[in-house]
Design a protein around this nucleic acid. Sequence first.
DNA 1: GTTCTATGTGGTACCGGTTACACATAATGA
DNA 2: TCATTATGTGTAACCGGTACCACATAGAAC
Lengths: 325, 325
Amino acid sequence: MANIRDVAKAAGVSVATVSRYLNNKGYISEEAKRVIAKAVDELNYQPSMIARSLSTKQSTFIGLIVPDIVNPFFPELARAIEDVALAYGYTVILCNSDEDLEKEINYIKTLQQKYVAGFIVATSHAEADHYMGLDIPIVAIDRRIHSSIPYIATDNREGARIGTQHLLDSGCTQILCMRGPSGLGPADDRFAGFTDAVKGKNVETHVIECPFHFDIAETMVKKVLQEVPIDGIFASSDVTAAGAMKAAYSAGIHVPSQLQIVGYDGTMLASQLTPGLTTVAQDLYRIGAMAARMLIKLIEGQELTEREVLIPAELLIRQTTRSEA
Amino acid sequence: MANIRDVAKAAGVSVATVSRYLNNKGYISEEAKRVIAKAVDELNYQPSMIARSLSTKQSTFIGLIVPDIVNPFFPELARAIEDVALAYGYTVILCNSDEDLEKEINYIKTLQQKYVAGFIVATSHAEADHYMGLDIPIVAIDRRIHSSIPYIATDNREGARIGTQHLLDSGCTQILCMRGPSGLGPADDRFAGFTDAVKGKNVETHVIECPFHFDIAETMVKKVLQEVPIDGIFASSDVTAAGAMKAAYSAGIHVPSQLQIVGYDGTMLASQLTPGLTTVAQDLYRIGAMAARMLIKLIEGQELTEREVLIPAELLIRQTTRSEA
DNA sequence: GTTCTATGTGGTACCGGTTACACATAATGA
DNA sequence: TCATTATGTGTAACCGGTACCACATAGAAC
């Protein structure tokens, strides 16, 4: 592979001029541009990003740290991030943290060695110390890390309120709330939204704390259905809602005529279930895209207009609820 | 951040000795090791991978090119690749090609500039020219690129045969095969497996060609159900099977008593549907892990024992089929 | 005519590693 | 005893860019 000196020689100019040409920096005559362009083309020259990074101490890598890409919540986010990163000439590095603090710290260390330009992080650790020291831009998605770190997420509280309200509007009077793990920001927010919606209303509510896991959700709901009469479920994720649907099916309870269910997330899963799952959809793509744009702004030294962005959620009414009021 | 010269100075040795220490190469005295280790520790020194790459022309980046990470087939693959990459000190770069040749070529060019060590590619382009020239190791997954490129996939033909046979064993006599796009390797193989299973048997078969898309599958199956009597469906993906389930539901046809369905892939979706989808599971994690291990072998100059690996598929019997023979 | 500024170009130190080579010294073998 | 080999270390060129600085030249301003 040709290097910049080869190009300079072929074009009969200095490396400095070639470098200026490549970066559109400083003065270059039209004649020089012409002759360099020709040389670049003839030699099929591609500048080495590695050498450039070494020299500028900057790179075009973005580290994306997610708990687990297999969780259907993250691929769409990753996709959005990748799309805008590509548009701006960046490349994304995928890291699965498994919510493991040590693994996460390790990744950050490794990627720092590789000169990543910034991080987009979805994590839930209370300890954010390891993020504070490093002088690399960071944007948090889904879960807030620290007040000093820009943060983008769905307006979970309002989203959950809307979802629960829909259950109310559809005639539910005995509602089960499958809240997510307490202590986890988004899960807490959604639970708060649920509470907002039912407060003062004439409904009986039951609450269980359920991890975002299909099998566990199914088992827990099965048990609840045997013990308490329920005509509506607000699940704080599509996966747990799917578990609830399965539990209802096993118990011979028909959805939505006997039991109505609202999920949360708006993943593909919700649309592909039978019957289609009514869910509170997060605009995952928009969150990811915005996070990427913000990070790139930070990387390129621009000021952020907002440091905390809440994206509204949208209720997608499908077949697990009876929409007539 | 401290560099190697700082460490050398602090330890009172030369940079060459420090470099040898870092790479476990050549002779170093125990005394030198001790004093360097101390300096490294005190300065919290981390070698720059960028500088190392520039010098050695090697990197620890692996490019993973998939059509779309949102397709539930790929996250698990990506996860496996990332896991073994991490174990070997590599980092994976995520690229979505959208099956777009130009985008793919662009990615390859960009990543070459960034000195990636190798590629893992899931693509379906007939033209593999752009992969031939580059002297970077490549491993293909799911879809064969070229005879010269190592390839790992599920034994799709045998998998489809098993899945179809299960339908036969469960008493189906009028089977619809929802085959994938013709010309696409895995889809063709699965169709061949279907044909293997029904050949010479006393069954009536119908075949439709259906892209791996939920809505389209639903629409197509709805139409078929109106036109032909069917008691079994072999879908060549879980997503299309899910579409078929929805179509059956809309038509008031009960699964599995009136219609049995077998999917393909063994994604999360299959297990989270109600009723649970019987499916031919690919060991995605194993495919990914093996691909990564093969690629790393290639990168590190080792010989491959096998250049083509077919991983057996496994039938997961759930509730969309009646297992009694 | 002199000073200033805009335009254009080249030389080269530097980023932070690796490694070929030179040069020691001690131990081994003939 | 002398040649050979194993062990240990340092110097400096090199990887392929960037960018500071010096140095032209030409036209404008005074």
